[in-house]
Design a protein around this nucleic acid. Structure first.
Length: 263
DNA sequence: GCAAAATGTCAAG
DNA sequence: TTGACCTTTTGCA
């Protein structure tokens, strides 16, 4: 599930449910002992940056920051409680936040921790531009690409370079931009880099709206069948040339691409 | 019933 | 580069 769009979607869903409300916080699983420090605090803000979520809580004039990263297995579950009480939490619930009208469960996150405001800023500063955030610009991304000899397929998954892109979006961006993932980043033209950025904005933002990654709705290539959601990721046949999709390990994970169309 | 995989990341070697 | 971590889901016996 979780590339950048998932976290932005979660932030947008959770904010109206929780912000300005006082929440009961607990860790049924017992692995997030600091939950007690959030109990009965008011939720001030919920914000996504790349694949990271930041929550501000306030209690008795003191602000505390919660940092969440879903990793590979993390999930949120929402329980509306206007009509019926929330069910007992599953044993794996790391954090339960219960506010008026909603109970939110977090299971299996890579990170769920309290951080200082300085540490929160440090984490954000370590991330590259997030194409879903409106104030992000291509400049920083372009500069990193221009100076790196790392293959572009590895570079765009580097969260310090481009925040929010994961293994699915990487394959889809490079497929639609027709760029071979093995090419050294600094050999890309300025136009190609701009195209990658524009596609990242378009596809990740669409992902927030759709709630999942469906790139075949937005590409300039007709998919092979109605149910096809990605062009390259986990595909075997290229919708453009009908040749075989290959994959090569880049950045430690398989990168799917068409050796004919991506040059 | 168990193993493997998954859209992620980090520490160890 | 590999293995470990987290949890759920899927596939194979």
């Amino acid at each position: 599930m979780p590339e950048g769009h998932t976290l932005h979607k979660a932030a947008r869903k959770q904010a109206p449910l929780l912000v300005d409300k006082v929440a009961r916080a607990s860790s049924p699983q017992g692995r997030f002992l600091e939950a007690a420090q959030l109990d009965r605090a008011r939720v001030v803000s919920i914000e996504a940056v790349g694949k990271h979520l930041f929550y501000a809580f306030e209690r008795r004039g003191i602000t505390r920051w919660l940092h969440v990263h879903l990793g590979l297995a993390g999930r949120f579950t929402y329980h509306p409680t206007t009509r019926t009480p929330a069910p007992a939490p599953l044993p794996s619930v790391r954090l339960r936040l219960a506010a008026e009208g909603t109970t939110l469960d977090l299971r299996g996150p890579l990170i769920c921790e309290l951080v200082t405001v300085e540490r929160a800023a440090e984490i954000r500063d370590g991330l590259g531009p997030d194409p879903i955030r409106s104030r992000s610009v291509a400049t920083k991304f372009a500069a990193r690409v221009a100076h790196s000899k790392v293959p572009i397929g590895a570079l765009i998954m580097d969260q310090r370079v481009l925040a929010g892109v994961g293994n699915v979006y990487r394959a889809e961006l490079l497929y639609l931009a027709r760029i071979d993932p093995r090419r050294p980043s600094r050999e890309l033209t300025a136009t190609e880099v701009q195209t990658l950025w524009d596609l990242a904005r378009q596809l990740l933002r669409a992902g927030v709206t759709d709630g999942r990654i469906v790139t075949t709705k937005y590409g300039d290539v007709a998919p092979l069948h109605a149910k096809q959601r990605t062009y390259a990721y986990k595909q075997t046949v290229c919708a453009r040339c009908r040749g075989l999709i290959w994959n090569v390990k880049l950045g430690g994970r398989p990168c799917f691409y068409c050796p004919t169309c991506q040059t």
